[in-house]
């Protein structure tokens, strides 16, 4: 069950620095999946609910979605709520990747059906390590749900 190289990773991130650092971390950790970036919540939803993706079949959906919480237009928790409310995306693996360590964000995030919650460390070394493990886990070890497969 190896990850298909075509399957993309959806990164929902408004901060270009973070985007660059995340991409760098992917690259350093030899994660070669294409990375689609949505710069706010609206863009993310637009992408995920775009019919062409679904016409393309399950392969059109990202194998992993990394969701920041603090986003312009539509915030991360709302995006998650919408995803979970739609039968097409309700099982989509979503990992919250955020700066916030707030208790309420953790509780709400898991409550809405996040698969994982990772706090972005300031220390880039630590960040690298986090992304490495993330990729290993979600792209290699984890079996995605059938609809996403």
């Amino acid at each position: 069950m190896s990850a298909s190289p075509e399957r993309c990773i959806l990164l929902i991130e408004d901060n270009p620095d973070d985007e660059a650092l995340t991409r760098r971390a992917f690259a350093k950790n030899k994660i070669t999946n294409p990375v689609v970036v949505a710069h706010d919540g609206a863009e993310a939803l637009e992408y995920l609910f775009d019919d062409s993706i679904h016409v393309a079949g399950a392969s059109g959906l990202p194998i992993l979605t990394l969701l920041d919480l603090k986003l312009p237009k539509i915030d991360g928790l709302t995006v998650l709520r919408r995803l979970r409310a739609d039968p097409r995306t309700e099982l989509l693996p979503v990992v919250i990747l955020t700066s916030s360590g707030e208790q309420q964000d953790l509780v709400e995030g898991y409550g809405l059906g996040a698969n994982s919650y990772i706090r972005k460390p300031v220390d880039f070394a630590q960040f690298m390590e986090a992304v490495r493990q993330l990729g290993l886990y979600w792209l290699v070890l984890n079996s995605p749900p059938p609809s996403v497969r």
């Binding site: 901060n15 620095d17 650092l21 603090k70 700066s99 916030s100 972005k120 460390p121 880039f124």
Partner: peptide, 15 residues
């Protein structure tokens, strides 16, 4: 918690 840390991460990361 959210916004002040992001630039720091950039500083650290790009350094």
């Amino acid at each position: 918690s959210h916004d002040l840390r992001a630039p720091l991460r950039s500083i650290d990361g790009f350094s």
